[in-house]
Each structure stands twice: as C-alpha cells, then as structure tokens.
Deep mutational scan, measured.
Amino acid sequence: MASDGVVVEIGKVTGSVGTTVEIPVYFRGVPSKGIANCDFVFRYDPNVLEIIGIDPGDIIVDPNPTKSFDTAIYPDRKIIVFLFAEDSGTGAYAITKDGVFAKIRATVKSSAPGYITFDEVGGFADNDLVEQKVSFIDGGVNVGNATPTKGATPTNTATPTK
C-alpha cells in the first residue's frame, strides 16, 4: 500500500443473489490541510450489481451534504461517478479525517463476483488547492465463495486525467 498520499479503498462485503448490500468507500491518509475537492470514477458490471443509491459517509460534515457531495450512476456506461467540492468557501466542510467517504447500496443480481474497480481520477486537492497523490484499492461483493480481489494492489495516480 502507498505510504504517502490519500488511499481510496472500496470495501469488500459478502452478499447473495437478491440481497441488498452496503459497500463502503474509505479514505485513508487524509492530509493535515484536509480535502477540499476530489472527483473520480469507479467501474462495475450492472449485470452483477444493480447500484440503487449512494449515501455520504461520516467524513462528509456539510450539514447539507447534497451541496458538497454528488454522485451519478450510469449503468449503460458501467460507471459510478463521485464528486466532492467543499461548499462553505472557508474550508469548514472539508474532509479532515480518515473514514467512510461514501456507502454504495447495491442489489446482487448474479452469482458472479461483484467487482467495483477504479477507472479514472480527475483530481484530489487540499484546502490550499494543492494537488494530492492518490491511490485506489478495488473491492466489491463476495457472492458465495467468490472473492472480488482483482486489482487489490493500489493504483498510483500522480496526475489528473480527463
């Protein structure tokens, strides 16, 4: 695992066909100046998982989280898009600690492993708008004895992609 920078880890949970599971997305290594904004994309298989919603985690402190935390689910493109932009203008609602960034709610549709993997990152910046190093650890849903650990090695991303 990367020793510096922010680590975004997609949790690994267990479920069975027809059940709804909650998959946490963790941030670790949050910089001392916090995270003022970030955007990134995960990939998944809508034939295996139906993403039914995404909720902000406990490290989102904006009293009205829909102003700073936004997501979009595109089953036709097989992606989930995340956007966080601190909304106070003063840094008061920045992410300042490690913990759960988001909770992905999904219904298991198939007995195949439900991988959720890193696809791309736009950027991560602290309260001074300084770009942060970030790496990703894939996860998803274990169905029966299947284990979604494909790509469990962190993917280092030093520069934003478009």
Rank of each mutant, 00 (worst) to 15 (best):
M1V: 13
M1I: 13
M1T: 10
S3T: 03
S3M: 04
S3D: 03
G5I: 15
G5C: 06
V6I: 15
V7P: 10
V7Y: 05
V7S: 10
V7E: 06
V7L: 10
V8T: 14
V8W: 01
V8C: 15
E9A: 07
E9K: 09
E9P: 12
I10F: 03
I10M: 07
G11E: 09
K12E: 06
K12I: 12
K12W: 10
V13Q: 03
T14G: 06
G15H: 13
G15S: 06
G15M: 02
S16D: 04
S16P: 10
S16H: 09
T19M: 04
T19R: 06
T19V: 04
T19H: 12
T20C: 11
T20R: 05
V21E: 14
V21F: 13
V21R: 09
E22P: 12
E22T: 08
I23H: 13
I23E: 14
P24T: 03
P24Q: 06
P24K: 03
V25W: 06
V25Y: 14
R28L: 11
R28G: 07
R28P: 10
R28T: 08
G29Q: 13
G29I: 14
G29V: 14
V30T: 06
S32F: 05
S32R: 09
K33P: 04
G34V: 08
I35N: 13
A36M: 01
A36N: 01
A36C: 05
A36D: 01
A36R: 00
A36T: 03
N37M: 01
C38T: 03
C38G: 14
D39A: 01
F40R: 00
F40S: 02
F40V: 02
V41D: 01
V41E: 00
R43H: 05
R43S: 05
R43A: 09
Y44H: 05
Y44M: 09
D45Y: 05
D45T: 11
D45N: 09
D45L: 12
D45E: 08
P46H: 09
N47F: 11
N47V: 09
N47R: 06
N47Y: 04
V48R: 06
V48W: 15
V48L: 07
L49T: 03
L49M: 02
E50M: 05
I51H: 06
I52R: 07
I52T: 10
I52F: 07
I52L: 07
G53T: 10
G53C: 12
G53A: 07
G53D: 06
I54W: 01
P56E: 05
G57R: 15
D58N: 06
D58T: 08
D58Y: 06
I59V: 14
I59H: 14
I59N: 08
I60E: 15
I60L: 11
I60H: 12
V61R: 05
V61F: 10
D62H: 15
D62T: 15
D62F: 15
D62Q: 15
P63N: 15
P63M: 12
N64Q: 15
N64S: 08
N64K: 13
N64P: 11
P65D: 15
P65C: 07
P65N: 12
T66F: 11
T66S: 07
K67R: 09
K67D: 06
K67L: 08
S68P: 15
S68E: 03
F69N: 01
F69H: 06
F69D: 02
D70I: 15
T71R: 05
T71W: 02
A72Q: 00
A72H: 00
I73N: 07
P75A: 06
P75H: 03
D76N: 02
R77H: 04
R77W: 15
R77D: 04
K78N: 03
K78E: 15
K78P: 01
K78I: 01
I79K: 02
I79R: 01
I79H: 01
I79V: 05
I80C: 07
I80Y: 10
V81H: 00
F82Q: 07
F82E: 02
F82N: 03
F82D: 01
L83G: 01
L83K: 00
F84K: 01
F84E: 06
F84D: 03
A85D: 00
A85G: 00
A85C: 04
E86H: 01
E86W: 00
D87S: 15
S88N: 07
G89S: 02
G89K: 00
G89A: 05
T90K: 05
T90A: 09
G91N: 02
G91L: 03
G91T: 04
G91Q: 04
G91M: 15
Y93A: 14
Y93G: 14
A94S: 05
A94P: 02
I95W: 01
I95Q: 08
I95N: 09
T96D: 08
T96S: 10
T96I: 10
T96Y: 10
K97Y: 14
K97V: 11
K97A: 11
K97G: 14
V100L: 05
V100Y: 04
V100T: 09
V100F: 13
F101E: 03
F101L: 06
A102G: 09
K103Q: 10
K103P: 14
K103M: 14
I104V: 08
R105T: 10
R105L: 13
R105H: 13
A106N: 05
A106Y: 13
T107V: 12
T107P: 12
T107C: 05
V108R: 11
V108F: 11
K109F: 15
K109P: 08
S110D: 11
S110N: 05
S111I: 06
S111W: 03
A112I: 12
A112K: 08
P113S: 04
P113I: 02
G114H: 09
G114R: 11
G114A: 08
G114P: 06
G114Y: 05
Y115F: 03
Y115G: 11
I116N: 15
T117N: 11
T117Y: 08
F118K: 12
F118T: 05
F118H: 03
F118G: 06
F118M: 15
D119S: 08
D119P: 01
E120W: 01
E120N: 03
G122V: 00
G122M: 00
G122K: 00
G122L: 00
G122T: 00
G123I: 00
G123Q: 00
F124Q: 00
F124L: 02
F124K: 00
F124G: 00
A125M: 01
A125K: 00
D126G: 02
D126M: 01
N127P: 01
N127L: 02
D128I: 03
D128K: 04
L129E: 01
L129G: 01
L129K: 00
V130R: 14
V130K: 06
V130C: 09
V130D: 03
V130F: 09
V130I: 10
V130P: 00
E131A: 03
E131H: 02
Q132R: 08
Q132W: 02
Q132C: 08
V134K: 03
V134T: 13
V134A: 08
V134H: 02
S135K: 07
S135G: 07
S135V: 11
I137G: 09
I137L: 13
I137F: 13
I137C: 06
I137R: 12
D138E: 05
D138M: 09
G139L: 02
G140C: 09
G140T: 14
G140I: 14
V141D: 12
V141Q: 13
V141T: 12
V141H: 13
V141N: 13
V141F: 14
V143M: 08
V143S: 11
V143W: 06
G144K: 12
G144W: 08
G144A: 13
G144V: 10
N145Q: 11
N145K: 14
A146L: 09
T147W: 07
T147I: 12
P148T: 05
P148G: 03
T149R: 11
T149C: 11
T149A: 11
T149G: 12
K150E: 11
K150Y: 08
K150G: 08
G151H: 07
G151A: 12
G151N: 14
A152F: 10
A152Q: 14
T153A: 10
T153Q: 12
T153E: 12
T153R: 07
P154C: 12
P154S: 11
P154T: 11
P154G: 11
P154Y: 13
T155L: 10
T155C: 11
T155D: 06
T155Y: 09
N156H: 13
N156R: 09
N156V: 10
N156L: 11
T157Y: 12
A158Q: 13
A158F: 09
T159S: 13
P160N: 13
P160R: 12
P160Y: 09
P160M: 07
P160I: 14
P160E: 14
K162E: 03
